[in-house]
Design a protein around this nucleic acid. Sequence first.
DNA 1: CCTAGACCTTCCCATCATGGGAGGGTCAAC
DNA 2: GTTGACCCTCCCATGATGGGAAGGTCTAGG
Lengths: 143, 143
Amino acid sequence: MKISEASRKSGVSVKMIRYYEAIGILQPIDRLENGYRLYSDIVVDDLKFISRARNLDFSLETISALLSLWRDKNRSSSEAHTIAARHLQMLESRIAGLQEMAELLRSLITCCPDDDKPSCPILDCLAGKPAGGDNQVMATRSE
Amino acid sequence: MKISEASRKSGVSVKMIRYYEAIGILQPIDRLENGYRLYSDIVVDDLKFISRARNLDFSLETISALLSLWRDKNRSSSEAHTIAARHLQMLESRIAGLQEMAELLRSLITCCPDDDKPSCPILDCLAGKPAGGDNQVMATRSE
DNA sequence: CCTAGACCTTCCCATCATGGGAGGGTCAAC
DNA sequence: GTTGACCCTCCCATGATGGGAAGGTCTAGG
């Protein structure tokens, strides 16, 4: 099949399919005489693999490693385990960071009168004014 | 003060200070005769404001709006409220997405034998094999 | 007076994953 | 023989950040 069908079947955009090949995640794809790429079902499976891994927010570099593992029938599950565990840890620390932000933001939003007057704890906090509560965005307290 | 001192006082890198000016978040900075930028304490405060807002993951575009509001003594707190509420919503949906990923990943990691044999539910899941449990990464189920 | 070093400037490039679009080739159907 | 749906490559843009080159400026020490 040609690239647009591979795209349709895999859910990966035509642009990205070519890109994955260009950066070496996909082996070089066979070409027809006119230069058109020819995709096998196996490559479509690789594309689905990539798509699922992207949905778990793995980087393309990591996905490349995972795909190699998948293709390697002599792999150890511990290798995939290690990669996944490291990624999970990163996800968790990102979640923690975002939650901290969200919590502070929520408290500021709750305090904000949301009216037509200028006084606003949200802006005060960003400006470093010690607000009424213990809201304080961690920052740059170098002075 | 010159740029490196402004950087030290604000916690914003020299590169970024220049960048913020270049994209118009900061007003054009006064120059000495030799072309060196001259920073006032007020601009340092702006930089701290930006830094705190970045710590809450506001985009520079949004920060530009917040900074304008902060400078506008005729603002309504509702304007900041709206911006912050929209941002909070975005943070929350990102958290939810990451948590979904983390949860699936955790369950896969738990199932993975983590040994020297090739069988691995993590890779199976990425490859679309319906694993033992109900682990299934949402993807591309177009066939 | 000269030099070393610590600044400052601008400009270009790289990141990461993704998309847009130009300019041009190929092929099938009508 | 043209139209339209494909395909190709190449360049550019995103957002926030850093790296580094090439070159100007200023100050302190010899």
